[in-house]
């Protein structure tokens, strides 16, 4: 096990929509440099969990700490916390009225008040890293789904976040574009980025993760290293879920 420091700590998180409980009692610790993959049937609350972590959804109980700082007490300014938490969504939501470069620069210029010159240089470097240097001037409508999603990733990365949240970011993509996006994430993982990934790509989960969390009906059912989880799931629910993806 890694001896890294705790980056994100979720304690007894409860979340409900009205009377409907979505997350029942989630406790989860993510260490620096760790890649955690969350899987589970749709509607199990995994996307909601990510949205709670950066305050897009209010929570009804429990607490979340980032770098040992309590971020869910209502006193912390989310706009400051969110700079440290990068998030990429399923439906590639670039801002359609801005070019790819302007999309990426919005955060550094408006939120972090960095200089245009420095931010542009940083952005160009990131565009190059994901192989989109020639697309900086393109509008989102001129990009493919995979390209848009890569721009969305660097839009989050340029803020120099300490942790990245990925919410099923390949789910809406055509199959041949999934790979290019997953490759970017693999490179990030190798570079030591801390990530929480919600995905349905089981092979990818196996390859990228340090730990797999299986959530069902709003609670963590299993938490194990990928090898153990995919070969010997401990619970009946996890076995049933994994069976959906095999064709034996």
């Amino acid at each position: 096990m890694k001896e890294a420091k705790k980056l994100l700590e979720i304690r007894h998180l409860k979340k409900s929509y009205g009377d409907l409980p979505v997350l029942k009692d989630i406790s989860l610790t993510v260490h620096k440099g760790e890649v955690v993959v969350i899987i589970g049937p749709s509607g199990c609350g995994k996307s909601t969990l990510l949205q709670c972590i950066n305050g897009l959804e209010p929570i009804q109980g429990g607490e979340i700490l980032l770098n040992d700082e309590l971020i869910t007490d209502g006193k912390v300014k989310w706009s400051r916390v969110r700079q440290k938490i990068g998030m990429v969504f399923q439906s590639y939501e670039l801002f359609p009225h801005m070019t790819a470069l302007e999309n990426v620069l919005l955060g550094p210029l408006q939120v972090q008040k960095r200089s245009r010159q420095e931010a542009t240089a940083a952005a160009k470097k990131l565009f190059e890293r994901v192989g989109l240097l020639e697309k900086t001037g393109a509008y989102p409508r001129e990009l493919s789904g995979g390209q848009k999603q890569r721009v969305a990733i660097i839009r989050a990365l340029i803020m120099e976040p300490e942790i990245m949240l990925f919410d099923e970011i390949t789910a809406a993509l055509d199959p041949e574009m999934v790979r290019e996006v997953l490759d970017v994430m693999l490179t990030l993982a190798k570079g030591g980025m801390t990530m929480i990934i919600v995905t349905h790509e089981m092979q990818f989960a196996k390859a990228i993760s340090d730990r797999v969390i299986f959530i069902d009906k709003g609670e963590i059912v299993e938490s194990a290293p990928p090898q153990a989880f995919f070969t010997q799931p401990q619970t009946e629910r996890a076995r049933k879920f994994l069976n959906i993806f095999s064709f034996e």
Partner: peptide, 13 residues
């Protein structure tokens, strides 16, 4: 779409 608000918020705007 709501996601436009969320994406902006997620950047810290």
């Amino acid at each position: 779409p709501k996601h436009q608000y969320d994406s902006g918020a997620a950047l810290g705007l």
